[in-house]
């Protein structure tokens, strides 16, 4: 699972929909790989507004990346984001992937297992 996806995904348990603790899900025992993905500056610029930066900081720290800026880099008309910033984001969001491990909900503690990069989000019916 890409770090970008982990910034999008929430707990699927019905009772967690309204809880602020159900996002982001927390990585445990994560094994990481770096896999090259074609760099596309326009894509990064396009999704940046929809990244939850505080959640990204939490996730990154859980995976051992602690040097993210405290504030989301915000491009302006006069100062668009530099190539290096975009490449760093690209590397973290798209090229860093969790292949094995767990995602755990901070509200209901439900564990979503990740195996071969695929997270299992199937729930027993009573939790849906």
């Amino acid at each position: 699972m890409k770090i970008l996806t982990s910034n999008y995904i929430t707990c699927a348990v019905k009772a967690c929909k309204s809880s602020t603790l159900s996002f982001p899900l927390h990585f445990q025992d994560a094994e990481l790989v770096q896999e090259e993905v074609d760099f596309n500056a326009e894509f990064i610029v396009g999704i940046l507004p929809r990244i939850e930066w505080d959640a990204l900081i939490v996730t990154a720290a859980e995976l051992g990346f602690t040097n993210l800026p405290a504030q989301k880099p915000e491009p302006t008309e006069e100062a668009p984001l530099g190539e290096q910033v975009l490449k760093d984001l690209h590397k973290l969001l798209l090229e860093t992937q969790v292949t094995e491990g767990k995602l755990v909900c901070g509200n209901c503690q439900h564990i979503y297992n990740i195996h071969q990069g695929i997270a299992n989000f199937l729930l027993p019916n009573h939790l849906v």
């Binding site: 699972m1 999008y8 995904i9 929809r50 071969q116 695929i118 997270a119 299992n120 989000f121």
Partner: peptide
């Protein structure tokens, strides 16, 4: 999904039942 892995698909894959909902934060996908 296992075949998708074998074929080296670029997408990020989730084992999930759409009938149970779509488990993403609001307003995320284009």
């Amino acid at each position: 999904l296992a075949i998708a892995l074998d074929r080296d698909t670029d997408g990020d894959l989730l084992l999930a039942d759409m009938g149970q909902g779509v488990p993403f934060r609001p307003g995320t996908f284009d």
